[in-house]
Nucleic acid binder design. Structure first.
Lengths: 116, 116
DNA sequence: GAAGTATGTCGCAAATATACGACATTAAGT
DNA sequence: ACTTAATGTCGTATATTTGCGACATACTTC
């Protein structure tokens, strides 16, 4: 029952944390950066570029695909992955709104002391 | 040795994923939003607002504090927590750079098909 | 000093995440 | 058909996360 209390939070909080969890591993950050840098949607070449086994990379790809952040298309024997740019833009907006909300208020007092 | 391969990634990728992991739980997102909404740095009132036990909330606070995203100051019997706004702004910039990089390239082809 | 309150830490149980080898599947080439 | 190559899935071992109760600590207040 580790995640039993998840339902008690806002849908917004849940969604933000879900996306954050997808980015909570350097391999998945690297995958997104890789897909962004190459215009062609490379497939298993991703595994070759990462310091992980092909199996592990495939799992990370499935996690990103489960959130629809990336999409895979079978092209004969290989599989092409590409970024879901539209969704990434929406996610970006959501993160921006969160950070703006978090940074708009009063900060800690002088020399990082709380201003209680 | 679950995280044995972490060192093989970029420092940037590691840092981004570390922060993302801090936001990868709705309770921690909620804590940051709470601290942002109240100008006074509430202490254990945070636990009262969340659907979790005081112990669990305290752990989430320690995780955020370990990354210096929030700071705690002992004020007599209670402890005041507040957001590290400066760090949050820097993190925001880092996330924005990441998302801009990820959304600048070509998206999937028409009707979400890969353009390999 | 005794009692009460607010916090944090420790220890434990259950659920997840990470990583990889072995296997199954599918498609291309011969 | 047979082989080869590219992917994904399954099973498994280990590490981490999550959640909470019990305890220890520290600081008021009486």
């Amino acid at each position: 029952m580790t995640y039993a209390k998840t339902a008690a939070f806002t849908e917004e909080q849940q969604h933000l944390s879900r996306v954050a969890k997808a980015l909570a591993h350097p391999a998945r950050v690297a995958i997104i950066q890789l897909l962004a840098s190459k215009q062609t949607c490379i497939s298993g070449d991703i595994a070759a570029e990462l310091p992980l086994s092909r199996t592990t990379v495939s799992q990370h790809l499935q996690e990103l695909k489960a959130l629809d952040l990336i999409r895979g298309e079978i092209d004969g024997l290989t599989v092409c992955y590409c970024l879901n740019t539209e969704l990434l833009q929406r996610v970006h907006q959501q993160f921006t709104a969160f950070f703006l909300e978090a940074t708009s208020g009063a900060t800690c007092g002088p020399d990082d002391a709380c201003a209680c």
